[in-house]
């Protein structure tokens, strides 16, 4: 009788714990959307905050975020894929591979504030890039590199050996084989890695605060769109943090709605990718 009671209590706890996650998620989404949705307007999304014109808007931050995502991916994706190709197709198992895999794992465990400090002194001071979108993107590309490498590596591992043998047997060179056979077959895994990286970049703040800064203006001229790379620019998440510090809760919740909307979309796309192609997924959490 006691045993039955004990079992029931434990089972009850298990259900409670599991529903806490559900409750938290629904609570967070509901609270943010209810408080933030009224502040979302066409005006909010397309203007820049200005005291002179009396406007409150996040257009500059949206543009900065797009720059940050595109630039970071432009740096990290080729390097990450190249690294995975080397590890899986060229390197022989041994010390070198262990070293590279160990450092990749280490890199994914380093907290973003450390990346921020490093980016500030290395890219910002040593390389002289200062507070700029470029500094931020270089810093973030180190941060998302493990995500791209690990996911590409797993996708390459899943390509059957017979594909390689077939291609080489027909006289294809190794590079030709990689380019025409391996990469297309591994594409879903690579895309999954990229989407996870985009999620990381959108949510990042600690690594950007002291590297990309907090500028929120739109470029004034055509040349300004290029010059923006070396100017300070705060992403949506940075602006959200700064708005909270200044107690501008309306702006903060407006941005939070936009960010959560993006996160939900990315999550949906990953889900479709993973289920359609049955790809293994490697997140920084280490889970599959």
């Amino acid at each position: 009788m006691m045993r039955k009671l004990k079992d029931d209590v434990l089972l009850c706890l298990i259900y409670l714990a599991a529903f806490l996650a559900e409750f938290l998620l629904i609570g967070i989404l509901a609270y943010v959307f209810v408080r933030g949705f009224p502040h979302i307007s066409w005006h909010f999304l397309t203007t820049v905050t200005s005291i002179l014109e009396g406007t409150v808007g996040i257009a500059g931050n949206i543009v900065n975020t797009i720059y940050m995502v595109v630039l970071t991916l432009a740096i990290a994706v080729p390097v990450g894929i190249g690294s995975a190709i080397y590890l899986n197709e060229y390197a022989r198992p041994g010390k070198v591979v262990r070293l590279i895999e160990f450092t990749t794992q280490t890199l994914s465990g380093i907290p973003s504030i450390i990346f921020g400090l490093f980016g500030m002194v290395f890219f910002g001071v040593t390389l002289g890039l200062g507070y700029s979108i470029l500094t931020g993107a270089l810093t973030l590309s180190l941060m998302v590199l493990p995500l791209i490498t690990r996911n590409t590596q797993e996708a390459l591992k899943a390509v059957p050996e017979s594909y390689r043998n077939g291609a080489v047997g027909m006289g294809a060179g190794k590079w030709y084989m990689i380019r025409t056979i391996l990469l297309p077959s591994a594409m879903p895994g690579i895309v999954t890695g990229i989407i996870l990286a985009v999620g990381r970049i959108l949510g990042e703040s600690a690594a950007l605060l002291f590297t990309a800064g907090s500028g929120y203006f739109l470029p004034r001229s055509f040349g300004g769109w290029f010059h923006k790379l070396v100017e300070s620019g705060g992403t949506l998440t940075i602006q959200l943090y700064l708005s909270m510090e200044k107690a501008q809760y309306d702006t903060a919740f407006g941005i939070a709605v936009v960010l959560l909307g993006m996160v939900l979309c990315l999550n949906l796309v990953t889900r479709v990718m993973v289920s359609r192609f049955e790809m293994p997924k490697y997140t920084d959490a280490g889970g599959r």
């Binding site: 390097v79 990450g80 690294s83 197709e89 060229y90 070293l99 450390i114 990689i178």
Partner: peptide
Amino acid sequence: IEKAAEIIFSLCAFMAVAAVFSITLYM
């Protein structure tokens, strides 16, 4: 081309090593 591809890929792979090494050094 084959040789160049191999060298470029190995350089990419060593980016992670270089990153961890220089972060440690700078910290």
